[in-house]
Design a protein around this nucleic acid. Sequence first.
DNA 1: CTGAAAGCGCTTACAG
DNA 2: CTGAAAGCGCTTACAG
Lengths: 338, 338
Amino acid sequence: MSIVTIKDVAAKAGVSPKTVSRVINGEAYVRPEVRELVQKVVAELDYRPNAFARSLSSSRSYLLGLFIDDPVSGYATDVQHGALIGCRQRSYHLVVEPVDLTAPDWEGQVRGSIAALRLDGAIVAPPICDEAALMAVFAESGLPTVLVAPSSAPPASGTVRMDDRRAAQEMTEYLLGLGHRRIGFVQGPISHSASARREEGFRKAMAAAGVTVDEDCIVRGDFSSRTGMELGERLLALPERPTAIFASNDDMALGVLITAMKHGIAVPERLSVCGFDDAPSSRAAWPQVTTVRQPKAEMAAAAVDILVNPQFRQKAGDEHAHLMLPHELILRGSTGPA
Amino acid sequence: MSIVTIKDVAAKAGVSPKTVSRVINGEAYVRPEVRELVQKVVAELDYRPNAFARSLSSSRSYLLGLFIDDPVSGYATDVQHGALIGCRQRSYHLVVEPVDLTAPDWEGQVRGSIAALRLDGAIVAPPICDEAALMAVFAESGLPTVLVAPSSAPPASGTVRMDDRRAAQEMTEYLLGLGHRRIGFVQGPISHSASARREEGFRKAMAAAGVTVDEDCIVRGDFSSRTGMELGERLLALPERPTAIFASNDDMALGVLITAMKHGIAVPERLSVCGFDDAPSSRAAWPQVTTVRQPKAEMAAAAVDILVNPQFRQKAGDEHAHLMLPHELILRGSTGPA
DNA sequence: CTGAAAGCGCTTACAG
DNA sequence: CTGAAAGCGCTTACAG
């Protein structure tokens, strides 16, 4: 394949390499006719600036790092997809860096990526965006860093999140609107603070509707469909059985659904079930599960925007960008009137 | 953060930059004591070679591209995970490049990535590894390219795959071993040739066991759980109902399972169901679905090995590496004696 | 508006 | 076994 360099373009256009550089970087101060000529030659020769040479001489790498814990999770996948789309639009490239906090040298790995690749910015996905030690590495490196859906608010250049509390509140209001009063709630693991916020939203809506929450109806799972099944058993065995169960993630909702099916309890006729996340499992189930769509890809794309935005980059460090993106209730077949 | 360069290390160690270069690249011809000294200084200064400078002066970028169609699919996720692990081990980095063949300028995008990033190699996931136009772009660029689970055998530096036919055969033998004779088979879409190979395996095992296949028991789906449900209805309504259904992917198996539940047909007591892929849906279901594990991550890691292996890189173009990786039958609760 | 000079941080030949 | 020179392909100051 042609290894066309800036010199080739310059020679053919009869200008200096610097002028070609100006044109391809969209700088001002180039005579329109010269600009046009250069652009024509660039197209003819299919010239692609060497990203490495560019990075070496400038201070930018045009590379963003996506740091994730478990790259195989559906969550990570969606986040990555959004980041990829954002990068593509801005002519950046994305380097995916798995971070295994249990590995002995994870810190060296992260430092290595930052230093060797001269990343222009980092996007950190949950749950590792809540790890103080990791955030310290980024802070120390001075790398602009945007956190996606962090639980707390660690020091970072920016954060992008959704309103878990408000979303859970809306879902609960929806169930109440269907006439449900006795509603079971399946909590997530304590470590996952978004889960706590979801519970808050649930309780807030219940209180606002003047409905007392029976604490027997509140059970704690670990976000797996397995605990969803177990806790479903428990809730459905209650003397006064709930008419609806709100699980704080979809996998647990699926577990509840399976348990209901095992016991021949028709969903949604005799039991409404809803989840949170809009995970693939919510669609694989039957009936499909009513849930909350997290704007995962949109959050990641917004993170890219924050990092790439020149104004932001300049002020990185003292300016912070905090975005709250809208969620969406996805109403499906698993919920119905009480 | 420290911007330590090779000169800093050289100065502190009292040697030339070239010697430092030799040490960090593990070249021969460095006196042991000098090597040790340099390594000590490198560690002290936490020196990280600038990947861009390295790439610019050498011909290697230490970057591999993973080209995928739909980065959100579970398949892509697993492949990426394996590639990531492979890269990590070899001190390479992975750049993920989504390829949207429906976009007007997909070809320019791919060319751009290859040229601008000076990739050392490309890993191409299915189904785009079967697109002739895309493969032509890689061929033209001269970039070493390894295909993961291609259906046909397009020209490429290497391929890594599993034996779909053999796996389906083994699964069928397993069902036959359980005493099943009337077995339904849900085909995948014609476009997906692996699906055809799975059917071949099924038929081969049946023939070997002397069992005639009733063509009414063979139905074609599109790999979605939706068609799994529909075709499940059809198979279960057959005058003589199958005692087992082998779906050529897990999503369809899940659909069959749901249909069975709806009709109150106990699985595995009255119907055995099995799938293919070991997708998340096979575990989310209840009972969990017996399936075939594709070594997706392993295939991708092997692809990295092929690309990074110096011997291979040298001969790239005229030498081809073709690997067949072992699969695994995952026996779970959805299958039982006839 | 345009270009010549210098340099980014490495590695590739090439001498010793 | 070791190092001085040149260069990879761009961009950053700096002149004009």
